[in-house]
Structures are given as structure tokens and as C-alpha cells.
């Protein structure tokens, strides 16, 4: 197992380094001179030269890359071109928001998705199975902005019009809100994300359950005279949920940074919207930082998935 972990960690480092290189190269290629962007069209040649010196742009590319990487690793992420503010706190604040959303989305989707998947798998081709399949597939087909708007229509405006307590349609939480303060505004975006995850996770869980039910060890367990409940919980689910757990861990990466559409619909200040903002303003240092955090998020989620899988699976753990 320790070899397994070491290997995974090695992969992780390699991935992150490679992406950092890619990010660096790509941003070098973007059209337009950085200092021109910062100082505006009217700036004189002298000011531009000064700016270049200050940013180290006169150095060779490898040196620039290493300096940038070193700074990144030590938390010195520079100043955002467009806002003139330090990048680190901005990104961290957004990351925090994204993590809160991720947490809520996971809490409401995973138990439901797994339960539906297990129910469908245990009742193959029975009404409950078809209902789950048709239901989740039809929802996953809808774009997130549609489901988002429908949810707003129902839970925000609809409930309000009925004079009932309702959920806010706008989720633009103020900076530094605590989790509890933010919670009411997290529910609708998290529900929207759930609709996407639901189909995905429940289908996979169903497939896992069906696959394991066919295994001869289930017959052994049944014919021992174990109560069916024990057979399912102790034997079937233990193995059937292994791939599900992996997928959940991987989807954390998507939840952290991939919710661009949902964040936009709900006006939620997460990492996704920050990335769009950085692209819009050609704010290169900000964009670099956001991408790096995103990649790290994905890589860590994958690592967690691998380790969890390895740990739960004795055939890997005891290698």
C-alpha cells in the first residue's frame, strides 16, 4: 500500500507540474503585451519599459517560469491586473465559497443518488428501477441553466407568491459570510448541481449493484442462511459501492471549479465565475492562479478517489 500511495503522490506532483508548465506557456502565447494591458493604450514607452522590468519580463522564459512557480508555491501570487488587489486572498475567498457549495451539493446528492441507485439495482427491471432510470436520465438531459431557472421559479418566486417561506433567487453571498449565513443561498445552486450528479451517480451505483449481485459469493452468502439484509449490506454493497466512491471523489473536482453556468445563473461568487471574470479582463496572473487551484483541486480529488479505493479494496491495500 505504501508503494501505491507513493506512486499516486508521484503522479500527482507530475500532473500539477505539467499543468503549471502548460498554463505558463499558454498565457505567454496570449496576444497583447501584458504591460500594455495593465497600463492602458495611452501609456508612454518609458512607463512600459519600467513595468516590464518590474514584472521580470526581461528575463528568459525558463527563469520567468521558475520564478513564477516558486512564487506560486510560497503563496506569493502577485497582484491582479484588473483590480490591483493581491490575488491570493481573492482566490482563497472564492475557493472557500466553492467548497461550501460543494459540501452542500454532496450532502444532498450523494445519499439520495446512492439510495436510488441501490434501490434500482436491487429491483432490476421492476417499476422502481424504470422510474429511477427514466427520471434521472430525463433530468440529466436538461441544461443546468434550465433546471436552475425552473428551481428558482418554483422555490423562490412560486413559494413567495403563495406567501410561504421561500429560498432566495440570488445567491450573491457577501465576502466572508459564515457557512450558516450562506446556507440558505446555497440550497438552490446545490440542488441544481444535484440534478446533474444524481443521474450520474445513481446509474453507476445501479450498475455496480447489478454486477455484484451476479457474483458467486452472493450465492454463498445467501446459502449460508444469512438474512437478505445482511447479504445486501455486508456483502453486495461493500463491493458494489467501490466504483461509486471513486466517482463521488472525482466529482468533487467538478463541483469546486466546474459550476460556471450554475454560479452565473445564481450569481454565486465561486471559482468558476472568478475564472470567467479573469478571462474577460485578460487578468493573466489571476487566471493563472485560478487554473492552478482548479487543477490542484481536480488532482487532489483524484488522489483521494484512488487512495479511498485502494484502502477499501484489500486486493490493493495488501499488495
Amino acid at each position: 500500500m505504501s508503494r501505491f500511495i507513493l506512486r499516486r503522490l508521484g503522479f500527482l506532483t507530475l500532473t500539477v507540474l505539467l499543468t503549471s508548465l502548460l498554463v505558463f506557456i499558454v498565457t505567454q502565447w496570449l496576444p497583447g503585451d501584458v504591460c500594455r494591458i495593465i497600463l492602458g493604450r495611452e501609456a508612454g514607452q518609458g512607463a512600459i519599459e519600467n513595468c516590464r522590468l518590474e514584472l521580470g519580463l526581461d528575463q528568459s522564459l525558463p527563469v520567468q517560469y521558475l520564478t513564477w512557480l516558486g512564487n506560486f508555491l510560497t503563496g506569493d501570487w502577485g497582484i491582479s491586473f484588473s483590480t490591483g488587489l493581491p490575488i491570493y486572498p481573492i482566490v482563497m475567498d472564492r475557493l472557500r465559497n466553492s467548497l461550501m457549495l460543494t459540501l452542500v451539493a454532496l450532502i444532498i446528492s450523494v445519499p439520495l443518488a446512492v439510495a436510488l441507485g441501490v434501490a434500482a439495482g436491487l429491483n432490476e427491471n421492476k417499476p422502481i428501477d424504470s422510474t429511477v432510470s427514466v427520471g434521472s436520465l430525463s433530468v440529466v438531459g436538461l441544461p443546468e441553466f434550465v433546471t436552475g431557472l425552473v428551481l428558482i421559479q418554483v422555490f423562490s418566486f412560486g413559494l413567495r407568491d403563495l406567501g410561504l417561506p421561500y429560498l432566495p433567487a440570488n445567491s450573491s453571498i457577501p465576502p466572508q459570510s459564515t457557512f450558516l449565513e450562506a446556507l440558505p443561498m446555497l440550497i438552490l445552486p446545490a440542488l441544481t448541481a444535484m440534478l446533474v450528479l444524481l443521474a450520474y451517480i445513481s446509474r453507476l451505483t445501479r450498475a455496480g449493484v447489478l454486477e455484484e449481485l451476479k457474483q458467486p459469493y452472493v450465492r454463498t452468502a445467501d446459502l449460508k442462511g444469512l438474512p437478505r439484509r445482511n447479504v445486501i449490506v455486508k456483502h453486495v454493497l461493500r463491493n458494489a459501492l467501490l466504483p461509486t466512491i471513486t466517482v463521488i471523489a472525482i466529482s468533487i473536482g467538478w463541483l469546486i471549479s466546474g459550476l460556471v453556468v450554475i454560479e452565473n445563473v445564481f450569481n454565486y461568487p465561486g471559482l468558476g465565475r472568478l475564472m470567467i471574470f479573469a478571462i474577460d479582463r485578460r487578468d493573466l496572473p489571476l487566471l493563472q492562479a485560478v487554473i492552478m487551484v482548479t487543477v490542484l483541486g481536480f488532482a487532489l480529488a483524484n488522489l483521494a478517489a484512488d487512495l479511498l479505493y485502494g484502502w477499501l479494496n484489500p486486493r490493493i491495500r495488501l499488495e
Binding site: 458467486p216 450465492r219 442462511g225
Partner: peptide, 27 residues
């Protein structure tokens, strides 16, 4: 089925063909 589970294991026991796949790999 409930009653069958009282019979399985206690009154009838079964030894299958493929020992490897007939044991739960994670227990």
C-alpha cells in the same frame, strides 16, 4: 423465502465450484 433462509446453511449446505469467486473478496 424467510423460512428458506432458516433451512439454508442449517439443514442444507452448499460447496460451489469456483472457490475464488465464491468468497467475498473484501471480507
Amino acid at each position: 423465502e424467510e423460512e428458506l433462509r432458516q433451512v439454508w446453511g442449517r439443514k442444507i449446505a452448499f460447496v460451489p465450484q469456483n472457490p475464488q469467486s465464491s468468497l467475498n473478496p473484501s471480507l
